[in-house]
Computed example of a mutant assay.
Amino acid sequence: MTGLQDVAVVGVHTTEQRRRLGRSALSACLEAALGALNDAGLNVSDIDGVAGRWPGPGGTVMHPGSLDWSTLLNQKVRWVQDTYPQGVPALLDAAAAISAGLCNTVLVVGGQASIKDETGSVAAYTRPENEFVQPWGAFTAVQFALVAQRYCKAYPESREAAAAVAAAIRNRGHENKEAVMYGRGPYTAEDILAAPAIATPFTLLDLCLATEGAAAMVLTSKDIARDTRAPVWILGGACEYQRQQYVNPPDYDEVWTIGTEAGERTFKMAGVSRDEVSVAQLYDINSFEVLRQMEVLGFCNAGEAAGYVKQVGVGADSKMPVNTDGGLLSYSHIGWGGPTLKIVEAVHQLRNEANGRQVKNCDIALAGGAGSGAQYYNVALLGREPA
Protein backbone atom coordinates (compact mmCIF):
# COMPACT_ATOMS: atom_id res chain seq x y z
CA MET A 1 0.00 0.00 0.00
CA THR A 2 1.18 3.51 -0.75
CA GLY A 3 0.68 6.64 1.33
CA LEU A 4 -1.30 8.23 -1.52
CA GLN A 5 -4.12 5.86 -0.67
CA ASP A 6 -4.47 7.42 2.76
CA VAL A 7 -5.68 10.68 1.18
CA ALA A 8 -9.16 11.61 -0.05
CA VAL A 9 -10.81 14.34 -2.10
CA VAL A 10 -13.40 15.72 0.31
CA GLY A 11 -14.70 18.81 -1.47
CA VAL A 12 -15.22 19.99 -5.05
CA HIS A 13 -16.86 22.98 -6.66
CA THR A 14 -17.21 24.56 -10.08
CA THR A 15 -18.53 27.99 -10.86
CA GLU A 16 -20.92 28.62 -13.69
CA GLN A 17 -19.21 27.70 -16.95
CA ARG A 18 -19.83 30.11 -19.82
CA ARG A 19 -18.26 31.33 -23.02
CA ARG A 20 -17.72 34.64 -21.24
CA LEU A 21 -18.44 35.13 -17.53
CA GLY A 22 -18.38 38.90 -17.34
CA ARG A 23 -16.27 38.82 -14.18
CA SER A 24 -12.62 38.50 -13.21
CA ALA A 25 -10.75 35.21 -13.05
CA LEU A 26 -9.85 35.97 -9.44
CA SER A 27 -13.48 36.28 -8.34
CA ALA A 28 -14.37 33.04 -10.13
CA CYS A 29 -11.43 31.16 -8.60
CA LEU A 30 -12.25 32.50 -5.13
CA GLU A 31 -15.85 31.32 -5.52
CA ALA A 32 -14.64 27.87 -6.54
CA ALA A 33 -12.19 27.69 -3.62
CA LEU A 34 -14.75 28.69 -0.99
CA GLY A 35 -17.34 26.41 -2.60
CA ALA A 36 -15.04 23.40 -2.39
CA LEU A 37 -14.32 24.11 1.27
CA ASN A 38 -18.02 24.44 1.98
CA ASP A 39 -18.67 21.17 0.16
CA ALA A 40 -16.09 19.51 2.41
CA GLY A 41 -17.52 21.07 5.55
CA LEU A 42 -14.16 22.72 6.24
CA ASN A 43 -13.02 26.30 6.81
CA VAL A 44 -10.28 28.45 5.35
CA SER A 45 -8.42 28.02 8.63
CA ASP A 46 -8.18 24.27 7.93
CA ILE A 47 -6.04 24.82 4.80
CA ASP A 48 -2.29 24.43 5.21
CA GLY A 49 -1.39 23.67 1.60
CA VAL A 50 -2.21 25.35 -1.73
CA ALA A 51 -1.79 24.48 -5.41
CA GLY A 52 -3.28 27.16 -7.63
CA ARG A 53 -2.04 29.47 -10.35
CA TRP A 54 -2.55 33.04 -9.20
CA PRO A 55 -4.85 34.73 -11.75
CA GLY A 56 -4.12 38.32 -10.67
CA PRO A 57 -4.47 41.22 -10.40
CA GLY A 58 -1.65 41.96 -8.02
CA GLY A 59 0.58 39.35 -6.51
CA THR A 60 3.66 37.94 -8.16
CA VAL A 61 4.48 38.06 -11.84
CA MET A 62 6.41 34.80 -11.39
CA HIS A 63 3.79 32.21 -12.31
CA PRO A 64 2.23 30.01 -11.10
CA GLY A 65 2.26 31.96 -7.80
CA SER A 66 0.35 29.58 -5.51
CA LEU A 67 1.60 31.39 -2.42
CA ASP A 68 -0.38 34.50 -3.32
CA TRP A 69 -3.47 32.55 -2.27
CA SER A 70 -2.21 32.61 1.32
CA THR A 71 -2.36 36.41 1.21
CA LEU A 72 -5.89 36.52 -0.22
CA LEU A 73 -7.16 33.91 2.23
CA ASN A 74 -5.16 35.43 5.11
CA GLN A 75 -3.94 31.96 5.93
CA LYS A 76 -0.43 30.80 6.72
CA VAL A 77 0.43 27.59 4.86
CA ARG A 78 3.01 24.83 5.23
CA TRP A 79 3.21 23.64 1.62
CA VAL A 80 2.68 25.00 -1.89
CA GLN A 81 2.91 23.35 -5.32
CA ASP A 82 4.15 25.64 -8.08
CA THR A 83 5.19 23.17 -10.77
CA TYR A 84 1.84 22.08 -12.23
CA PRO A 85 -0.89 23.25 -9.84
CA GLN A 86 -3.89 21.63 -11.51
CA GLY A 87 -5.60 18.34 -12.24
CA VAL A 88 -3.93 14.99 -11.65
CA PRO A 89 -0.38 16.33 -11.01
CA ALA A 90 -1.71 18.63 -8.26
CA LEU A 91 -3.82 15.77 -6.89
CA LEU A 92 -0.83 13.42 -6.67
CA ASP A 93 1.61 16.02 -5.34
CA ALA A 94 -0.85 17.14 -2.68
CA ALA A 95 -1.53 13.54 -1.68
CA ALA A 96 2.20 12.85 -1.42
CA ALA A 97 2.71 15.95 0.72
CA ILE A 98 -0.17 15.01 3.01
CA SER A 99 0.98 11.42 3.37
CA ALA A 100 4.52 12.63 4.13
CA GLY A 101 3.21 14.85 6.92
CA LEU A 102 4.18 18.11 5.20
CA CYS A 103 0.59 19.38 5.47
CA ASN A 104 -2.88 18.12 6.30
CA THR A 105 -5.39 19.79 3.97
CA VAL A 106 -4.69 21.15 0.48
CA LEU A 107 -6.73 23.49 -1.72
CA VAL A 108 -6.31 23.08 -5.48
CA VAL A 109 -7.90 25.84 -7.53
CA GLY A 110 -7.73 27.22 -11.08
CA GLY A 111 -9.66 28.77 -13.91
CA GLN A 112 -9.85 31.66 -16.31
CA ALA A 113 -12.08 34.60 -17.25
CA SER A 114 -11.91 37.88 -19.14
CA ILE A 115 -10.41 36.18 -22.19
CA LYS A 116 -9.77 38.71 -24.92
CA ASP A 117 -11.94 37.99 -27.94
CA GLU A 118 -10.03 37.91 -31.21
CA THR A 119 -12.42 37.45 -34.10
CA GLY A 120 -11.25 34.78 -36.53
CA SER A 121 -8.38 33.75 -34.30
CA VAL A 122 -7.62 31.18 -31.64
CA ALA A 123 -7.31 32.02 -27.95
CA ALA A 124 -4.05 33.80 -27.16
CA TYR A 125 -3.02 31.22 -24.56
CA THR A 126 -2.96 28.52 -27.25
CA ARG A 127 -0.07 30.39 -28.93
CA PRO A 128 2.76 30.30 -26.36
CA GLU A 129 5.77 32.49 -27.15
CA ASN A 130 8.02 29.51 -27.86
CA GLU A 131 10.57 29.32 -30.66
CA PHE A 132 8.76 26.78 -32.84
CA VAL A 133 5.20 27.95 -32.08
CA GLN A 134 4.29 31.64 -32.12
CA PRO A 135 6.85 32.84 -34.76
CA TRP A 136 5.51 30.32 -37.25
CA GLY A 137 1.82 30.94 -36.62
CA ALA A 138 1.37 27.54 -34.95
CA PHE A 139 -0.93 26.91 -32.01
CA THR A 140 -1.49 24.03 -29.63
CA ALA A 141 -4.05 22.21 -31.79
CA VAL A 142 -1.43 21.98 -34.55
CA GLN A 143 0.95 20.16 -32.20
CA PHE A 144 -1.70 17.49 -31.70
CA ALA A 145 -2.60 17.44 -35.40
CA LEU A 146 0.99 16.54 -36.30
CA VAL A 147 0.71 13.22 -34.49
CA ALA A 148 -2.97 12.59 -35.29
CA GLN A 149 -2.11 12.77 -39.01
CA ARG A 150 0.36 9.92 -38.66
CA TYR A 151 -2.10 7.78 -36.70
CA CYS A 152 -4.85 8.46 -39.22
CA LYS A 153 -2.59 7.42 -42.08
CA ALA A 154 -1.67 4.19 -40.30
CA TYR A 155 -5.28 3.46 -39.32
CA PRO A 156 -7.62 5.19 -41.81
CA GLU A 157 -10.70 3.90 -40.00
CA SER A 158 -9.71 6.08 -37.03
CA ARG A 159 -10.96 9.26 -38.73
CA GLU A 160 -14.60 8.22 -38.60
CA ALA A 161 -14.12 6.72 -35.14
CA ALA A 162 -12.74 10.02 -33.83
CA ALA A 163 -15.75 11.81 -35.28
CA ALA A 164 -18.04 9.32 -33.54
CA VAL A 165 -16.23 9.98 -30.26
CA ALA A 166 -16.60 13.74 -30.68
CA ALA A 167 -20.31 13.36 -31.43
CA ALA A 168 -20.89 11.12 -28.40
CA ILE A 169 -19.10 13.46 -25.99
CA ARG A 170 -20.69 16.58 -27.43
CA ASN A 171 -24.09 14.93 -27.09
CA ARG A 172 -23.42 14.48 -23.36
CA GLY A 173 -22.87 18.24 -23.18
CA HIS A 174 -26.00 18.81 -25.26
CA GLU A 175 -27.95 17.03 -22.49
CA ASN A 176 -26.11 18.59 -19.51
CA LYS A 177 -27.78 21.83 -18.37
CA GLU A 178 -24.52 22.94 -16.75
CA ALA A 179 -22.51 22.63 -19.98
CA VAL A 180 -21.55 25.64 -22.07
CA MET A 181 -22.85 23.78 -25.14
CA TYR A 182 -26.13 22.66 -23.55
CA GLY A 183 -28.80 22.32 -26.21
CA ARG A 184 -26.27 22.65 -29.05
CA GLY A 185 -26.94 19.27 -30.63
CA PRO A 186 -27.49 16.44 -31.04
CA TYR A 187 -24.55 15.65 -33.30
CA THR A 188 -23.67 12.79 -35.61
CA ALA A 189 -20.23 11.71 -36.80
CA GLU A 190 -21.14 13.22 -40.16
CA ASP A 191 -21.70 16.60 -38.49
CA ILE A 192 -18.21 16.46 -37.00
CA LEU A 193 -16.61 15.59 -40.34
CA ALA A 194 -18.54 18.33 -42.16
CA ALA A 195 -17.51 21.11 -39.77
CA PRO A 196 -14.94 23.72 -40.90
CA ALA A 197 -11.39 22.38 -41.14
CA ILE A 198 -8.92 23.78 -38.59
CA ALA A 199 -5.75 21.65 -38.71
CA THR A 200 -5.87 18.38 -40.64
CA PRO A 201 -7.30 15.98 -39.57
CA PHE A 202 -9.23 18.17 -37.09
CA THR A 203 -12.39 20.07 -37.83
CA LEU A 204 -13.81 22.68 -35.50
CA LEU A 205 -16.00 20.10 -33.75
CA ASP A 206 -13.05 17.76 -33.09
CA LEU A 207 -11.46 20.41 -30.87
CA CYS A 208 -12.12 21.53 -27.31
CA LEU A 209 -13.69 24.78 -26.19
CA ALA A 210 -11.99 27.91 -24.84
CA THR A 211 -14.42 29.05 -22.16
CA GLU A 212 -14.50 30.72 -18.76
CA GLY A 213 -15.07 29.51 -15.23
CA ALA A 214 -13.18 28.02 -12.28
CA ALA A 215 -12.89 24.73 -10.46
CA ALA A 216 -11.47 23.68 -7.10
CA MET A 217 -10.96 20.60 -4.97
CA VAL A 218 -9.89 19.97 -1.40
CA LEU A 219 -7.78 16.99 -0.32
CA THR A 220 -7.09 15.88 3.20
CA SER A 221 -5.70 13.08 5.32
CA LYS A 222 -7.54 9.91 6.18
CA ASP A 223 -8.18 10.94 9.77
CA ILE A 224 -9.85 14.20 8.75
CA ALA A 225 -11.58 12.72 5.70
CA ARG A 226 -13.49 10.18 7.76
CA ASP A 227 -15.39 13.03 9.42
CA THR A 228 -16.44 14.64 6.13
CA ARG A 229 -19.71 13.88 4.38
CA ALA A 230 -18.55 12.09 1.24
CA PRO A 231 -14.81 11.42 0.82
CA VAL A 232 -13.56 10.03 -2.49
CA TRP A 233 -10.35 8.06 -2.15
CA ILE A 234 -7.21 8.12 -4.24
CA LEU A 235 -6.46 4.58 -5.38
CA GLY A 236 -3.47 5.24 -7.61
CA GLY A 237 -1.90 7.64 -10.05
CA ALA A 238 1.18 8.43 -12.10
CA CYS A 239 2.67 10.99 -14.49
CA GLU A 240 4.86 10.52 -17.56
CA TYR A 241 6.80 13.33 -19.24
CA GLN A 242 8.69 13.29 -22.55
CA ARG A 243 9.78 16.96 -22.60
CA GLN A 244 8.55 20.52 -22.12
CA GLN A 245 5.20 21.15 -23.76
CA TYR A 246 4.88 23.13 -26.99
CA VAL A 247 8.59 23.84 -27.45
CA ASN A 248 9.95 21.09 -29.69
CA PRO A 249 7.47 19.72 -32.24
CA PRO A 250 6.18 16.29 -31.18
CA ASP A 251 7.56 13.14 -32.81
CA TYR A 252 4.83 10.55 -33.39
CA ASP A 253 7.15 7.64 -32.63
CA GLU A 254 7.95 9.17 -29.25
CA VAL A 255 4.65 10.59 -28.08
CA TRP A 256 1.73 8.61 -29.46
CA THR A 257 2.13 5.99 -26.74
CA ILE A 258 3.03 8.38 -23.93
CA GLY A 259 1.08 7.40 -20.84
CA THR A 260 1.43 3.64 -21.31
CA GLU A 261 3.86 3.31 -18.42
CA ALA A 262 1.89 5.77 -16.27
CA GLY A 263 -1.26 3.74 -16.86
CA GLU A 264 0.41 0.48 -15.91
CA ARG A 265 1.81 1.96 -12.71
CA THR A 266 -1.56 3.47 -11.81
CA PHE A 267 -3.52 0.23 -12.18
CA LYS A 268 -0.83 -1.71 -10.33
CA MET A 269 -0.83 0.80 -7.48
CA ALA A 270 -4.63 0.72 -7.26
CA GLY A 271 -4.80 -3.07 -7.44
CA VAL A 272 -7.74 -2.99 -9.85
CA SER A 273 -8.31 -4.18 -13.40
CA ARG A 274 -9.52 -2.22 -16.42
CA ASP A 275 -12.84 -4.06 -16.26
CA GLU A 276 -13.50 -2.58 -12.81
CA VAL A 277 -13.46 1.03 -14.02
CA SER A 278 -17.01 2.38 -14.03
CA VAL A 279 -16.42 5.69 -15.81
CA ALA A 280 -13.51 7.50 -17.50
CA GLN A 281 -12.97 11.25 -17.61
CA LEU A 282 -10.40 11.38 -20.42
CA TYR A 283 -8.62 14.53 -21.52
CA ASP A 284 -10.52 15.36 -24.70
CA ILE A 285 -8.53 18.31 -25.93
CA ASN A 286 -9.38 16.74 -29.28
CA SER A 287 -11.23 13.65 -30.44
CA PHE A 288 -8.13 11.69 -31.49
CA GLU A 289 -6.69 11.99 -27.98
CA VAL A 290 -9.62 9.97 -26.68
CA LEU A 291 -8.77 7.16 -29.11
CA ARG A 292 -5.12 7.37 -28.06
CA GLN A 293 -5.92 7.16 -24.36
CA MET A 294 -8.16 4.13 -24.86
CA GLU A 295 -5.15 2.34 -26.32
CA VAL A 296 -2.34 3.49 -24.03
CA LEU A 297 -4.42 2.88 -20.89
CA GLY A 298 -5.05 -0.69 -21.99
CA PHE A 299 -8.78 -0.65 -22.72
CA CYS A 300 -7.93 -1.93 -26.21
CA ASN A 301 -4.78 -2.85 -28.11
CA ALA A 302 -2.68 -0.51 -30.24
CA GLY A 303 -4.49 0.41 -33.43
CA GLU A 304 -7.78 -1.05 -32.20
CA ALA A 305 -9.47 2.09 -30.81
CA ALA A 306 -11.70 2.43 -33.88
CA GLY A 307 -13.00 -1.10 -33.35
CA TYR A 308 -13.54 -0.39 -29.65
CA VAL A 309 -15.60 2.70 -30.45
CA LYS A 310 -17.70 0.79 -32.95
CA GLN A 311 -18.26 -2.30 -30.81
CA VAL A 312 -18.26 -0.94 -27.25
CA GLY A 313 -18.75 2.79 -27.61
CA VAL A 314 -18.02 5.66 -25.25
CA GLY A 315 -21.52 7.07 -24.73
CA ALA A 316 -24.10 6.61 -22.00
CA ASP A 317 -24.82 3.01 -23.05
CA SER A 318 -21.17 1.94 -22.97
CA LYS A 319 -19.89 -0.39 -20.26
CA MET A 320 -17.47 2.45 -19.44
CA PRO A 321 -19.00 5.84 -20.33
CA VAL A 322 -16.48 8.55 -21.21
CA ASN A 323 -16.66 12.25 -20.26
CA THR A 324 -20.13 12.15 -18.80
CA ASP A 325 -20.41 15.93 -18.33
CA GLY A 326 -19.64 16.72 -21.97
CA GLY A 327 -15.91 17.06 -21.45
CA LEU A 328 -13.63 19.77 -22.74
CA LEU A 329 -15.40 19.43 -26.07
CA SER A 330 -18.79 20.54 -24.80
CA TYR A 331 -18.93 21.13 -21.03
CA SER A 332 -16.06 23.57 -20.65
CA HIS A 333 -12.31 24.08 -20.93
CA ILE A 334 -11.08 26.72 -18.51
CA GLY A 335 -7.34 26.84 -19.08
CA TRP A 336 -5.50 26.18 -15.85
CA GLY A 337 -8.67 24.80 -14.31
CA GLY A 338 -9.47 22.43 -17.19
CA PRO A 339 -7.63 19.36 -15.86
CA THR A 340 -9.31 19.75 -12.46
CA LEU A 341 -12.73 19.51 -14.14
CA LYS A 342 -11.93 15.85 -14.86
CA ILE A 343 -11.50 15.10 -11.19
CA VAL A 344 -14.56 17.11 -10.19
CA GLU A 345 -16.79 15.07 -12.51
CA ALA A 346 -15.20 11.81 -11.30
CA VAL A 347 -16.02 12.84 -7.72
CA HIS A 348 -19.62 13.67 -8.61
CA GLN A 349 -20.04 10.27 -10.25
CA LEU A 350 -18.53 8.38 -7.31
CA ARG A 351 -20.74 10.29 -4.88
CA ASN A 352 -23.82 9.43 -6.94
CA GLU A 353 -24.63 13.12 -7.35
CA ALA A 354 -24.28 13.58 -11.12
CA ASN A 355 -28.02 14.07 -11.63
CA GLY A 356 -29.27 12.96 -15.06
CA ARG A 357 -25.84 11.84 -16.22
CA GLN A 358 -25.20 9.47 -13.30
CA VAL A 359 -23.52 6.14 -14.10
CA LYS A 360 -25.15 3.25 -12.23
CA ASN A 361 -23.09 1.42 -9.63
CA CYS A 362 -20.16 3.77 -10.06
CA ASP A 363 -17.38 2.53 -7.78
CA ILE A 364 -14.13 3.40 -9.59
CA ALA A 365 -13.44 6.40 -11.82
CA LEU A 366 -10.45 7.26 -13.99
CA ALA A 367 -9.27 10.81 -14.69
CA GLY A 368 -6.59 11.72 -17.23
CA GLY A 369 -4.73 14.81 -18.37
CA ALA A 370 -2.80 16.24 -21.35
CA GLY A 371 -1.56 14.00 -24.17
CA SER A 372 0.62 13.46 -27.22
CA GLY A 373 0.92 17.00 -28.57
CA ALA A 374 1.78 18.29 -25.08
CA GLN A 375 4.31 15.44 -24.72
CA TYR A 376 3.22 14.39 -21.25
CA TYR A 377 0.35 12.46 -19.70
CA ASN A 378 -1.03 11.90 -16.22
CA VAL A 379 -3.70 9.60 -14.86
CA ALA A 380 -5.40 8.77 -11.56
CA LEU A 381 -7.91 6.25 -10.28
CA LEU A 382 -10.41 7.30 -7.62
CA GLY A 383 -12.77 5.12 -5.63
CA ARG A 384 -15.91 5.28 -3.56
CA GLU A 385 -14.16 3.14 -0.95
CA PRO A 386 -10.53 3.31 0.18
CA ALA A 387 -8.07 0.80 -1.26
Rank of each mutant, 00 (worst) to 15 (best):
A51E: 11
V44D: 01
A51H: 08
T71Q: 11
M62K: 09
G59Y: 00
W69E: 01
P57C: 14
V61N: 12
L73Y: 07
L67C: 00
L42W: 10
D68R: 15
G65V: 01
H63G: 10
P64L: 09
N43L: 11
D48I: 08
G58Y: 12
P55Q: 05
W69Y: 08
P57L: 12
V44Y: 00
T60C: 02
P64V: 09
G41W: 09
H63L: 13
G52V: 06
D46E: 06
R53F: 13
L67R: 05
L42F: 12
A51F: 10
R53H: 11
P55T: 08
G52M: 02
R53T: 14
S70A: 15
G41I: 05
D46N: 13
P57T: 13
V44L: 03
A51G: 14
D48P: 07
S45G: 07
V61A: 13
T60W: 01
P55A: 05
D48N: 14
L67M: 08
G58I: 01
L67I: 09
T71C: 09
W69G: 04
L72S: 03
T60Q: 02
H63C: 04
L42K: 13
G52A: 13
W54I: 04
G56K: 08
W54L: 06
W69T: 00
S70H: 06
D46R: 04
G49K: 01
P57I: 13
N43C: 08
G49N: 02
V50L: 12
M62P: 00
P57R: 03
G52S: 04
W69K: 04
V44N: 06
G49M: 05
L73H: 08
M62H: 15
G56C: 05
G65L: 11
P55G: 04
G52E: 04
W69P: 01
D68T: 09
D48G: 05
G52Q: 06
G49T: 02
N43Q: 14
P55K: 03
D46W: 10
G56L: 11
T71F: 14
D68F: 15
S45E: 14
V44K: 01
S45K: 15
P57D: 09
D46S: 14
P57H: 13
I47D: 06
T60R: 01
G52F: 02
W69S: 02
T60D: 02
V44H: 01
G56D: 03
G58H: 12
T60E: 02
V50H: 03
T60P: 06
G52L: 04
L72I: 12
G49L: 03
G49F: 00
S66T: 04
L73M: 14
G59L: 01
A51M: 09
P55Y: 00
W54R: 12
T60L: 00
L67W: 04
D46I: 05
A51P: 11
T71G: 09
S70R: 10
G58P: 06
L72K: 10
S70D: 00
D68Q: 15
P57Y: 13
N43E: 15
S45R: 15
G65E: 06
R53A: 11
A51L: 11
H63A: 15
G58N: 12
G41P: 07
L73F: 15
L67K: 00
G49A: 12
V50W: 05
W69H: 00
R53P: 05
V61P: 03
H63S: 11
T60V: 12
